[in-house]
């Protein structure tokens, strides 16, 4: 038993962190929100191997590597990277498990290579297609059928301007059969895991930024981080994140076991709560500047609130944790 990342996994995370730091995501997020669909970063993430992590080896992927996927999504969350990343990874699972080799062969190698951006709708759990305007393919899963879907009209406005959410209509039917609901369930669980990892990363970045701010911002002749009221808020945020992270990695390790669905739900509840608390405290400690659109923490704060209810609400996941008979 060794429940810490190995050297290679840590290096993978550090490589992504370096890439994203050099990219400077705040400017990129703002451009994305303004409608710029440049794929330079997407291609760079693909070169780092991010999109191979949910693609089977026979389709040029790395096989399904849930721990590495969590490492990657944690870093992507830390830098609040926009775009349908979780959706593309979940779509890869759906296409890989749908029991249709031709369909898999058509899309999966392109996903692994970063040449296909995919969005996804599964009416009961993922209602609208994120950034469908940027996608090469939008999937609509309904019962035993998978359809390619088209955006219907313009995007619905989200709190997070970097998330454009499209209602869709079904186009061409891509696959059908009893394997589809199973594939859709597997895709959903992986999406929940990826979203949870992203939330922990978002929360961690907000905590780090806020700690730096509390050390430097002075009021009443001292750094505000000297006040216990501020300290205790930040200590609570750290505690939440420190106990959410092991649940996310623990869920990654239960991939393939009957506990996976329950474990990803537990991870999502904890990650969502921890990240949301980080966002609230970040907002409070930054004061008025944190409430502004022009100050970068707002990019993280808005994304956390959006993801809090995406890929299943906290209430749905709590119910799922207790629904499994034991």
């Amino acid at each position: 038993m060794k429940f810490v990342l190995d050297a290679e996994q840590r290096l993978f995370g550090e490589t992504l962190h370096k890439l994203l730091t050099e990219t400077g995501t705040p400017a990129l997020i703002r451009r994305w929100a303004a409608g710029d669909r440049d794929r330079t970063l997407w291609t760079a993430l693909a070169e780092a191997g991010v999109f191979t992590l949910a693609v089977p080896e026979r389709h040029d992927g790395a096989g399904l590597l849930p721990v590495e996927l969590v490492v990657a999504l944690h870093e992507l969350g830390r830098h609040a990277v926009p775009g349908p990343i979780v959706e593309t990874l979940a779509a890869a699972v759906l296409l890989g498990e749908a029991d249709d080799e031709a369909l898999g062969a058509r899309w999966l190698p392109r996903i692994a290579a970063g040449e296909a951006v995919v969005s996804l709708v599964a009416p009961a759990v993922v209602r609208r297609a994120l950034d469908a305007d940027a996608a090469d393919l939008t999937l609509l899963v309904d019962g035993e059928e998978v359809w390619s879907a088209l955006p219907e009209g313009s995007a619905v406005r989200s709190l997070d301007p970097a998330r454009r959410l499209f209602p869709v209509v079904a186009g061409e039917r891509l696959a059908a059969g009893p394997a589809v609901p199973r594939a859709a369930a597997a895709a959903y669980d992986l999406g929940v895991l990826a979203c949870s990892a992203q939330l922990v990363g978002l929360g961690r970045a907000l905590l780090d930024t806020t700690v730096v701010y509390a050390r430097t911002r002075r009021q009443f002749g001292r750094a505000i981080g000297e006040f216990q009221a501020v300290k205790h808020h930040l200590a609570n945020v750290l505690t939440g994140l420190e106990f959410a992270r092991p649940l996310v990695y623990g869920a990654a390790l239960s991939f393939g076991s009957p506990d996976f669905a329950r474990d990803v739900s537990a991870a999502k509840v904890a990650a969502s709560d921890a990240a949301y608390a980080a966002a609230r405290v970040a907002l409070q400690v930054h004061g008025a500047i944190g409430y502004t659109d022009e100050y970068d923490p707002s990019l993280w704060i808005r994304k956390v609130r959006a993801l809090h209810s995406a890929w299943g609400t906290p209430a749905e996941h709590r119910a799922r944790v207790l629904a499994v008979p034991r």
Binding site: V211, R215, A235
Partner: peptide, 11 residues
Amino acid sequence: IAERVLGLPRE
């Protein structure tokens, strides 16, 4: 936690 883990200034 705040002072020794997060590195906030001592009161």
